[in-house]
């Protein structure tokens, strides 16, 4: 049984089928890339998988549980987390505080015990602080610990947003263009981070436009065009697929 199974997934906005009868599965431990031209429906697919959009029809099964109609926070708690295409961090506060908020879902203390400050609540706080520091160093932002998140470079913001997604301890991590808007020189650092995450045995779905990167790091690729799955397979198979070349007409040189 696959980690995640998607069947007949469709999302219509008015007359437009942003995602159109998609069927695919994600296997435990793999890195699956989802590529396709602008507007192909990649982000919409992530929004469906994480409960931010409700599908028009179709089913999403994660670890043999139907999560099609789950709310986003329930999806996260069941083990899927995501980053957003528009880098989402709490820019009003510090880097470490971001990661502390990221740990909040693990907190069990109730309202009263956290206001009064029972020992159990204090112990929990300490544990959460430690975990936040651990993730801070995992994503390589120790030296930015107490800096305002708003002041980070685009690349550091991407690291922080990935750190936030990791805070929820996902089994499946969805990355929406983790190198979007980042300088060419800084991309390899982010790729290293993705590799490090894979070594934690976390399954990854990656949306990317940078073909060289996709070809080198993916186990498998799915190609979307107008919401449809037009090709699926290993990087080599996809790169030589006629349909894909047609969909990317004019962008062929990037392969």
């Amino acid at each position: 049984m696959a980690l995640l199974e998607i069947s007949g997934l469709t999302k219509r906005f008015g007359g437009l089928s942003a995602v159109d009868d998609l069927n695919f599965s994600v296997k435990q431990g793999e890195l699956l890339s989802i590529i396709g031209p602008n507007g192909a429906g990649k982000t919409t697919l992530f929004n469906l998988m994480t409960g931010f959009y409700k599908p028009t029809s179709g089913k999403i099964i994660f670890k043999e549980k139907d999560i099609t109609r789950s709310k986003p926070h329930q999806v996260t708690r069941s083990g899927i987390s995501r980053t957003f295409q528009m880098t989402s961090i709490y820019s009003q506060t510090t880097v470490l505080e971001n990661l502390v908020i990221g740990q909040a879902l693990h907190a069990k203390s109730g309202l009263c015990s956290s206001i009064i400050g029972f020992p159990s609540a204090n112990r929990e706080r300490k544990k959460i602080q430690d975990k936040a520091e651990e993730i801070l160093s995992f994503v390589g932002l120790e030296d930015k610990r107490d800096k305002s998140a708003a002041g980070l470079t685009e690349e550091a913001q991407k690291r922080l947003s990935i750190g936030l997604a990791l805070s929820t301890e996902p089994e499946l991590l969805l990355l929406d263009e983790p190198t979007g808007g980042v300088n060419m020189e800084e991309i390899s650092g982010l790729i290293d981070l993705v590799d490090k995450i894979r070594q934690l045995n976390i399954t990854i779905c990656l949306i990317e436009h940078k073909m060289r990167m996709v070809m080198s790091i993916s186990d498998r690729i799915i190609v979307l065009s107008y919401g449809k799955n037009i090709a699926e397979g290993t990087p080599d198979a996809v790169a030589n697929n006629e349909e894909v070349i047609k969909a990317y007409l004019g962008e062929r040189c990037v392969f």
């Binding site: 996260t76 506060t93 908020i101 990221g102 909040a104 907190a107 936030l164």
Partner: peptide, 23 residues
């Protein structure tokens, strides 16, 4: 408190907070 921090997090960015597993 951590609960209070989630209130503040909602005021900063509700979707991000929801995606971090907070109801």
């Amino acid at each position: 408190s951590l609960i209070g921090k989630t209130f503040i997090a909602i005021s900063y960015n509700e979707n991000l907070t929801e995606s971090l597993g907070i109801n």
